[in-house]
Amino acid sequence: MIAAVEAPEESHNGSEVPLLSIEDVTVQYPSKKWRSPDFLALKGVSLDIRAGETVGLVGESGSGKTTLGRAVLGLAPVTTGRIRYDGQVISAMNRKQRRTLSDEIQVVFQDPYTSLNPALTVLDILTEPLLTAGTGRAQAEQRVKDLLEQVHLPRDASNRLPREFSGGQRQRIAIARALCRDPRLIVCDEPVSALDLSNQSRVLDLFIEIQERTGVSYLFVTHDLSVVRYISHRVAVMYKGEIIETGDAAKVTTQPKEAYTQKLLLAAPVPDPARQASRRAARQKFSAKLHVAGPFESPAS
């Protein structure tokens, strides 16, 4: 196994082999209705993630950002193209082969209320992946103690059930579960969207803290531009199943090149009524000029 820790500042200078490389991936779902065309969730998407890097994936609902995350996890069928992890093609793996990847790639989902098994205690939730992998029970329980500390949860949390925790705490449990086998890549599917603002920033800080310590990479799916600006090194903007703009996080989220990204940026509210009013006016002027369907067509998920 290759050592996971690499300095993040070196890792996104573009010179090395990426940890994850998504190459011209198309995901096609067969249509449910008779004789209607198949649904293309992803159309030839390419994206690289380097070790220790956070790539933010933004876009409106239905843009395919969640599908891309699921394709990386092997939960969405890759029709054409391929996904390589550490040089190895993982997009055509069956479940059994996929099992060997489970200490490499992990996931944190949006809703902390459905992402934890309600019948298991926190200890069982966190030891289960370790015991499945063949770790001894005593060792697994020691590991859980460390993990709980890492995600800033009290030690006595392990004997309680998920329902006894708040949303933010549950998300910390989900993060601890993702961390328990020292993955090198975590797919985060809107991991802070279900949390209130103060919890959002605390959980985001936890993600950054973990990355600084372990050098893990994140594919960070979100619809929230301020979140993506805060956490990402690079940002990819998705629209209708395609990546339309990629670049440095600060650049894409402040001076986007693509018209759609500009529009997305203008759609994010600001906490100042006067500025918000002028932005709304700008956005409307912009929409009139622009013929692409905007982020206002469907409410954000």
Partner: peptide, 26 residues
Amino acid sequence: KLDYVRTLRSRGLSDGRIVFKHVLRN
């Protein structure tokens, strides 16, 4: 449909294991 099952699937666990160890009880 729940995310914790999706999490287990992403780890490549077999259907039988997922159903009998995690889903059935709930």
